[in-house]
Nucleic acid binder design. Structure first.
Length: 640
RNA sequence: GCCAAUGUAGCUCAGGGGUAGAGCACUUCCUUGGUAAGGAAGAGGUCAUGGGUUCAAUUCCCAUCAUUGGCUCCA
């Protein structure tokens, strides 16, 4: 007999070898119908797998994370089964569950699998699901596993099995389909009631671009049709927040094929938002002892030979600009740091001056791969809110804390509460990829770790994600469709001071090497604003809204009064406009709402006679009529 | 860069081997209207670009460019 401990602490005895499904049934049939996997001693397992030792058990439904994973993983197998029956001879890569669904990587050989094929596969899956086949687990020896897939002629599975240890290999079978898989899976295909194959993509085998590109099919599935409908509805909603769509609708920015791919053009309203952000940060940085500089957009090739960037990125970058002088070449600047190093070098520095903080809203140009371009989030010309701090090694932590504080302030101010702070350290297995001594790295890494701990933000740590010149802290934010983007970054750098031979005179009159911090709280205005648009759905906070108040005269008889109100608002530095079109008030309201203007003032006969305005808040509706000064008070309160 | 798909009016999209259509937006006129779309008329397109097939191509084929979804990359 074995003791089974339930999440509420209750313990019950069952015969050895009882399955989780049987345990669930012993509690209630209803529970047994809903559970799709079980967590046994913290490990998610199949429901029908016998439990042979006393254990803590928790039942997982679709709603649970582990349940979803098993459900989607099982759907991936179902898709593979459907694909094998429709396209015999295909070879399978891997097919895991992901955050919102699953995918399977398939080698279709000579067949070009297109989007038109998706529906056919979907239908086949539904048909197979109805067969209600069980997912059966079996343990196989390595020899047998290899023999099976040699017979099946699937090189990808063979490669995977080669890397596995004998005694640790399991197959799962449902219907006519057998797959190498460590599980866990749901009990049977019958509970997969709703399936949607969403998209198609190329994906290199094992994520290596030197390998063959397989066809990746993405999909999602649910135990109820209504859940799928809901999910698709959410995806539609998310698309409405896409910054590319809102950017065009709200006239914030544009692209032009003639100007070039990935080269954003900022329209007046977008420029306004960007300038507001720039002014805000400029002011903050002034308070924190930064000095603003401006450097040219191009620089002599020699600058990047010194910095080392030419060797690393020269070929894959915008190619040099030639001059009438032979052998003279200039590059569009891909980063601002080398320029700033030259500024530091311009005059000798005493330790008394440090830290020196040099800031620039520097526009940089990088030849991003064509397939990578994405709205404002990934472009070929962008402006960083860049700064480089040159300090003594023992000032590093304090400076880092200061930068961290600024970054947090920026994120808070912009309403980004959902971000991930990622500490990127070097790969301890692969130290030769990085420059600098162990001692220097340890110091830099602990400065980052200590600083984040001190300020108390949750972090995740990624080994091997550091820049080659030093560790960094990146702030990641998700877009409307759940894709993660890096915004702010703080990087410690021992490399450039070395390459540029930067030094300061210490108290003992000897020369020392400063440490450099690269930092950008926004990252770039382009990407930051793209995410700001998506997180606010285009409803900018009042201080950022290009037009704060739209004045709507009931008819053109009241244009003069509207003008008077508008002038008064402008005089107090509010951004107001008048909609003087010969349209009905309902139409003017609708247009102001659609353009996401935060406030509307309706003025007609009543308002003019009483000297009032009727206010309306975006998304909320009528907030009553009031004296203009009271309305301005509402604005002022919201701005503070 | 790679794989797949898309490209028709300012926007959203329909159409289809015989030189194009809707809604919204725009212009003009009528209407002067009270809290999310008043009415009428009009203008607007080398059907992304370049080749090819064809009596005829916006439609079929190829290439290029751009865009989209991913993969790889990201100083």
């Amino acid at each position: 007999m074995i003791d089974i401990t339930f999440p509420d602490g209750r313990v019950q005895t069952y015969p050895k070898g009882t399955s989780a499904l049987e345990i669930a049934k012993s509690i209630s049939e209803g529970l047994a119908r809903q559970v799709i996997a079980a967590e046994v001693n913290g490990e998610v397992r199949d429901l029908n797998r016998p439990i042979n030792e006393s254990a803590k058990i928790a039942f997982l439904k679709f709603e649970d994370k582990g349940g979803k994973k098993a459900f989607w993983h099982s759907t991936a197998h179902l898709m593979a089964e459907a694909l094998e029956s429709l396209y015999p001879g295909i070879k399978l890569g891997i097919g895991p569950p992901i955050e919102n669904g699953f995918y399977y990587d398939i080698d279709f050989g000579d067949y070009t699998f297109g989007e038109a094929d998706l529906e056919k596969v979907e239908n086949k899956m539904k048909e197979l699901a109805k067969q209600n086949n069980e997912y059966l687990r079996s343990e196989v020896s390595k020899d047998k596993a290899l023999a099976f897939f040699t017979e099946k002629n699937d090189p990808y599975k063979l490669e995977l099995i080669e890397a596995l240890e004998d005694g640790n290999i399991t197959f799962y079978t449902q219907g006519n389909f057998v797959d190498l898989c460590k599980g866990p899976h749901i009990p049977n295909t019958g509970i997969i009631k709703a399936v949607k194959l969403l998209s198609l993509a190329g994906a290199y085998w094992r994520g290596n671009e030197k390998n063959k590109m397989l066809t990746r099919i993405y999909g999602v599935s649910f135990p109820k049709q209504s859940l799928l409908d809901e999910h698709l509805q959410l995806l539609e909603e998310a698309k409405k927040r896409d910054h590319r769509r809102l950017g065009a609708e709200l006239q914030l920015f544009m692209f032009s094929e003639k100007v070039g791919a990935g080269l954003p053009i900022w329209l007046p309203k977008g420029t306004f938002v960007r300038n507001q952000l720039e002014n805000y940060l400029k002011e903050e940085q002034l308070k924190r002892g930064y000095q603003q500089v401006i450097t040219p957009h191009i620089a002599n090739k020699n600058l990047y030979i010194t910095s080392g960037h030419y060797a690393k990125y020269g070929e894959g970058s915008f190619q040099p600009i030639k001059t009438p002088n032979e052998n003279e070449e200039f590059f569009l600047k891909p980063m601002n740091c080398p320029h700033h190093c030259e500024i530091f070098k311009h005059v000798p520095h005493s330790y008394r001056e440090l830290p020196i903080r040099i800031a620039e809203f520097g526009t940089v140009y990088r030849y991003e791969q064509s397939g990578e371009l994405h709205g404002l989030s990934r472009v070929r010309s962008f402006t960083q809110d860049d700064a480089h701090i040159f300090c003594m090694p023992d000032q590093l932590k304090d400076e880092f804390l200061n930068v961290l504080d600024l970054t947090m302030q920026v994120l808070n101010r912009m309403g980004f509460s959902e971000f991930t702070a990622q500490i990127s350290l070097r790969d301890p297995e692969n130290k030769e990829k990085y420059i600098g001594s162990d001692e220097v790295w340890e110091k830099a890494e602990s400065a980052i770790i200590d600083a984040t701990r001190e300020i108390g933000i949750p972090t995740i740590t990624e080994l091997g994600e550091a820049a080659f010149y030093g560790p960094k802290l990146d702030f990641m934010v998700k877009d409307a469709l759940g894709r993660s983007w890096q915004l702010g970054t703080i990087q410690v750098d021992y490399n450039l001071p070395e390459r540029f031979d930067l030094e300061y005179v210490a108290s003992d009159n000897t020369k020392h090497r400063p440490v450099m911090i690269h930092r950008a709280p926004f990252g770039s205005f382009e990407r930051f604003i793209s995410l700001l648009i998506e997180s606010t759905a285009g409803n900018f906070p009042l201080w950022l809204a290009p037009t704060q108040v739209m004045i709507l005269p009931i008819s053109d008889k009241f244009n003069a009064y509207a003008q008077y109100i508008c002038d008064a608002l402008k005089k107090d530095d509010f951004r107001a406009e008048i909609d003087q079109r010969q349209e009905k008030i309902g139409k003017k309201i609708r247009d102001a709402e659609v353009s996401k203007t935060p406030y509307m003032l309706i003025v007609g006969e009543k308002e003019e006679l009483e000297g009032l305005v009727s206010a309306r808040k975006h998304g909320q509706g009528d907030i009553g009529s009031m004296a203009l000064k009271d309305f301005m008070l509402i604005l002022k309160n919201e701005l503070n």
